[in-house]
C-alpha cells in the first residue's frame, strides 16, 4: 500500500492558498523537513463535513432585493448554524 505524504499535500494546499489571490512573497524556511503527523487535524479539504462547514466560507453572489444582513441571516438558517458573518456590507445603512 502506498503511503500518503500528508506533509507534502499540506504544503501544496498552502501554496494553493497563496495562489488564490496571487500572493507571491517568498517563503523562508526555518526548519527543513519538519513533518506533520496525519493523526492530528485534517488537510482542510478532508475535514469531515460537519467540521468542513464549521471552518468554511462561501463566496456568495448577493442577489438584488435583500440586504447583506438579511442574506447572511438566510444562510445561517439554511445551514442551521448559530454564527455567520459577511465580508463587508453592500449597503451603507446596515449595521
Amino acid at each position: 500500500m502506498e503511503e500518503r505524504d500528508v506533509t507534502k499535500e499540506g504544503m501544496s494546499f498552502i501554496r494553493e492558498i497563496d495562489e488564490f489571490c496571487g500572493y507571491n512573497r517568498r517563503w523562508l524556511v526555518k526548519l527543513e523537513g519538519e513533518p506533520t503527523d496525519p493523526r492530528y487535524g485534517w488537510l482542510p479539504r478532508e475535514r469531515p463535513i460537519g467540521k468542513y462547514i464549521e471552518y468554511g466560507v462561501i463566496n456568495l453572489d448577493k442577489p438584488p432585493g435583500p440586504t447583506s444582513h438579511e442574506v447572511v441571516a438566510w444562510v445561517k438558517r439554511m445551514f442551521g448554524v448559530q454564527r455567520a458573518g459577511h465580508g463587508g456590507t453592500l449597503e451603507p445603512h446596515t449595521p
Binding site: 464549521e54 453592500l90 449597503e91
Partner: peptide
Amino acid sequence: MGRGYPKVTGVLPVALQRMTRVVGSVM
C-alpha cells in the same frame, strides 16, 4: 427592508461559524 438599495448585488463572502472570527480581515 432594503428597498432603498434594491439593485445592489455581487461578491459577498460569508464566513460560517468558526471562520466568522477572521471576517474582519476580509471586511
